[in-house]
Simulated scan of single mutants.
Amino acid sequence: MSSLESKSFSTPDETRSFADKGAAEMVVLDGNTVFKDRFEPGWRWSEHVRPLAGTTTCQSPHMFYVVSGRMHFLMDDGAEGDVGANEVARIEPGHDAWVVGSDPCIIVDFGATATFALPAQRTAGTKA
């Protein structure tokens, strides 16, 4: 294995659509998945990903940097908050999320599971 590996989101390994409200571009480096997500205004996990994931709330952890825009998170335990441009956040499984405002939210996520935003039938029993 090489000690240097790089990829570009200009040519991602895979792109997963959020219906008409954005997409997740994925690259894999030495088995580690990194997503660059674009969430359009009006995007909400419970509306645009839940039908794919087949879970009540998002069951993927996230560790990410917000490039632009703003996202609101509502945790299953009732905790909630916003994360915006130039901020870094860690979100545990068990949450809903949605774009705040009229600007797209762009996130680089280093902590999502590889099955994030995959249709339930493609995850072979795992949850996204």
Rank of each mutant, 00 (worst) to 15 (best):
D76Y: 02
A124F: 15
P41Q: 10
S8K: 00
F116P: 02
E14Q: 09
F110K: 05
F64A: 13
A117P: 04
F39D: 02
A114E: 07
T115G: 00
D96V: 07
T113K: 15
M26P: 05
W43Y: 08
K127V: 09
K21W: 00
G22E: 07
F116D: 06
P41G: 08
F64Y: 05
T115I: 09
E87A: 00
T113P: 01
H72Q: 12
T55E: 03
A79Y: 07
G78I: 10
T15W: 06
E87H: 00
V108N: 12
T57I: 06
F39A: 04
M1T: 15
F64V: 00
V108G: 10
K127L: 12
R70E: 15
I107D: 08
N86P: 01
P51A: 06
V83H: 03
K36P: 02
G31I: 11
M1L: 15
F35G: 03
A124R: 15
A112R: 10
M1R: 14
G42H: 00
K7N: 01
R16G: 05
G111P: 00
G31T: 12
E25I: 02
V34Y: 07
L29V: 13
R122V: 14
P119R: 06
Y65H: 13
A124G: 12
F9I: 06
E25T: 08
E80A: 12
T113F: 12
T126R: 13
S68P: 10
S102N: 15
R16M: 04
E87L: 04
V108E: 13
G31W: 09
V88Y: 01
D96G: 04
T113G: 13
S6F: 11
F35T: 07
G94H: 03
G69I: 03
P119L: 02
M75V: 05
F35M: 08
A97E: 09
G101L: 09
V67T: 14
M75G: 07
P41N: 09
G125H: 02
D103E: 15
E14P: 07
D20N: 07
T126L: 12
R50H: 03
M63H: 11
C105S: 01
E92N: 14
G101K: 08
Q59K: 10
A117L: 02
M63F: 11
S60D: 10
T15E: 08
S60M: 13
S3H: 14
D20S: 04
S2N: 13
G78D: 02
G78V: 06
Q121C: 05
K7W: 02
Q121P: 05
A117I: 01
E5M: 14
G78R: 11
R90Q: 15
W43F: 11
F39P: 01
A23Y: 13
R50I: 08
V83D: 01
G78A: 11
C58T: 04
V100N: 00
A128D: 04
S102A: 15
T33S: 12
I106N: 06
